[in-house]
Design a protein around this nucleic acid. Structure first.
Ligand SMILES: [Mn+2]
Ligand SMILES: [Mn+2]
Ligand SMILES: [Zn+2]
Ligand SMILES: [Zn+2]
Lengths: 142, 142
DNA sequence: TATTGAATAATAACTATTATAAAACGAGCG
DNA sequence: CGCTCGTTTTATAATAGTTATTATTCAATA
């Protein structure tokens, strides 16, 4: 863990973020496992080192880290259910900022290469793809 | 609307779903616009034709339609925030059933073709891709 | 028409997340 | 050292989206 200790201090300095013990431990909990965890997961892990930590602190710092680019959000969708009546196979273009979704067509996937990277047993019989970026109005704004 | 009227009756029959007035109208509201709507959007639209409808009925029927394959869910992620400490550019493989996420590497996107399909102004400077399918254990189960 | 099972409406409950306010902290300074 | 001030954390209330519960309505059948 000495490694991530230093890693966090450097990252925080680069983004002008004051380092606190809580932040340090939250960050380390995220990268300790190479997985994609929920705030509750992180909270449970951090509590083993800081039993008094508040769930709000975990949320606050995860949000902060995501905004600063220290962490990546794995679920860059609108937080509510969205439905699609179009059953034709098609893909989606999602704006990471405003969460808007538009259809996109075309065979831009190299299925051969993709399946070469695929872990065994993964069923990709009709692959659905989402491509994330910034929509026109969002990329104009910033 | 006569078209979707008939279309819904046929789809419902195919899936053994009893047709009710509410279901008919909810379905029509979804495909009336070629967009990706939230349950509240649908609720607002349906209320103009059935003022007494309950929000729960909208939710129930949207879920039902998704399960039967009459509609597609646009947000097939875990419903809670997930964070990723890996900042190296990489893509994700998401299981549509259990919502598990794993990293996937490799250049399986034809960026030339993709940008040909891209609407003007969409910023794809570092494209993130998510590929949806069924993970090994989920595809084994069913 | 009476019976019965399914769908709906009204509303309560629940869960994830955010907002608020008070307490604790900590760097800088006399 | 103590004090001060801005920041962070904690505890908790509030909110939003969704699901569960239950009484009512509906529609098909006998
Ligand atoms: Mn679509
Ligand atoms: Mn990842
Ligand atoms: Zn946008
Ligand atoms: Zn799965």
């Amino acid at each position: 863990m000495r490694l991530t200790h230093k890693q966090f201090r450097e990252l925080a300095a680069k983004h002008g973020l004051p380092v606190t013990h809580q932040r340090q431990v939250v960050y380390e909990a995220v990268i300790a496992s190479h997985r994609h965890h929920s705030p509750e997961d992180i909270y449970a892990a951090v509590r083993r080192r800081i039993p008094s930590i508040s769930l709000a602190t975990v949320y606050n710092n995860l949000r902060l880290f995501i905004e600063c680019g220290l962490l990546r959000e794995v679920t860059p969708h609108a937080s509510t259910l969205r439905v699609d009546g179009n059953l034709e196979p098609h893909h989606h273009l999602v704006c990471s900022r405003c969460k808007s979704v538009q259809d996109i067509e075309g065979d831009f996937i190299d299925l051969k290469r993709l399946s070469r990277q695929l872990p065994g047993g993964f069923d990709l019989s009709q692959p659905l793809i989402e491509v994330f970026g910034l929509c026109r109005s969002c990329s104009a704004k910033k």
